[in-house]
Design a protein around this nucleic acid. Structure first.
Lengths: 219, 219
DNA sequence: CCCAACCTGACAGCTTCCTGAAGCCTCCGG
DNA sequence: CCGGAGGCTTCAGGAAGCTGTCAGGTTGGG
């Protein structure tokens, strides 16, 4: 698979390059966005790995311009933990997946495989939860077979529950996960999003435990 | 953990069966793919060990059909050294791990533990206390296997006992622990909460020592 | 047998949560 | 540059269930 890696950090870039080259992919590695634009224009890539913090501009902008031109090449975002708001913005801008640094290289290989499968038409793993069929990679949900659309925040919230099925999550934990460090939420935002999720996915998807937090409902 | 072992070799199958049964898992061993399909359909397994060379068909086909149905049960492939192409095909088809025969049985146990942790997403330590399984991080308790719901105060109280298992705790100590400094309690609140805990978790969970306080019951 | 300590069902007050509605922000098309 | 749309956050009124209190019953020691 032809992959374009956009990453300015030399150490991380080399590690990623070696990993995916070792998986048998053909990798071009650029460190700046202008070089990335040139590369995209001249070569047909099947996948882009995009760091969001680059010396000559924000990666988000690059992604948006790509999509604005009608380019549907799958993009996986590489982002640091303190850029979670960027992450949500990235998904809105048309990214296909994201990885939070520092990430496991094996995890990277798996995500690449997943994105690749999605675009070659092979099926992704589907998580079944009661009446819900969830395709995490494609970010699609069916409830009793009919598709349901979630917004970016709703996805982030639902993923938090799916990633730890039996775990109770306090509102503080959910805020940490949905919002960048230090971004204070001073209202019942989490409650509102939970309410919306329930309306879309079913009332019993998320159970509240008063004074403690929320938990994924029984399948 | 409920494990399905699909392996036609009698000697290897018995060895594997004994090893993972010895780890405390519940194992069903089938020698043919048709029997495996029946077993998968009737029983909910948490892990599948799949030999790729079977008398009535190739294991790869079984795996692909499983994934095509949306089944995400983790699968570990058992393969001989001369089937490396099958192995790669297996990973592409949605296997989670592989072992090359002849493999070390301890290695098998380790891989099972790894895959199980990855998929149940539950590396939380579980405290066993008599009939109770307590997952402090997830805030979940099972009594004889059935889940029990505690309220916030009940958790706080129970945690006080669990954190110092053998220690006697006076009512004054418990009040200090459950309530903010200065918040005075002017009734038998602690007694009431102990009573509620006993009703939910069993009468012998907390023992009374008259005039002194309370203590966690014997496991 | 008596008294103190403890248990437990009931209940009202109050914290916590739900949800509709409104305002604000960003993005996008014209 | 403007206006509309969609999404996110905030607010507020109402609902739900936790929790402290009390009263009456039970247990245990002397």
């Amino acid at each position: 698979m032809r992959i374009l890696l956009i990453e300015d950090d030399a150490v991380l870039g080399a590690a990623v390059h070696d990993q995916i080259a070792g998986d048998g992919h053909s990798v071009d590695w650029v460190k700046r966005l202008d070089a990335a634009s040139d590369a995209m224009a001249s070569t047909g890539y099947e996948l882009v790995l995009l760091d969001l913090m680059l010396p000559d501009g924000r990666g988000i902008r690059f992604l948006k311009e790509l999509r604005a031109r009608g380019d549907v090449t799958p993009v996986i975002i590489l982002t640091a933990l303190d850029q979670i708001t960027d992450r949500i913005e990235g998904l809105n801008a048309g990214a296909d997946d994201y990885l939070i640094k520092p990430f496991d290289l094996a995890e990277l290989s798996a995500r690449i495989g997943s994105v690749a499968r999605r675009y070659t038409g092979n099926p992704n793993p589907i998580i079944r939860h009661g009446a819900l069929d969830v395709d995490l990679a494609a970010r699609s949900i069916r409830r009793d077979g009919t598709p349901v659309q979630l917004t970016a925040r709703e996805w982030a919230l639902f993923e938090a529950f799916l990633s730890r099925p039996a775990q109770l999550l306090s509102k503080a934990q959910l805020e940490d996960r949905l919002y960048a460090f230090g971004a204070e939420i001073e209202s019942n935002t989490i409650e509102v999003h939970v309410s919306r999720l329930r309306k879309k996915l079913g009332a019993d998807v998320i159970r509240t435990e008063r004074g403690l937090g929320y938990r994924l409902g029984a399948p």
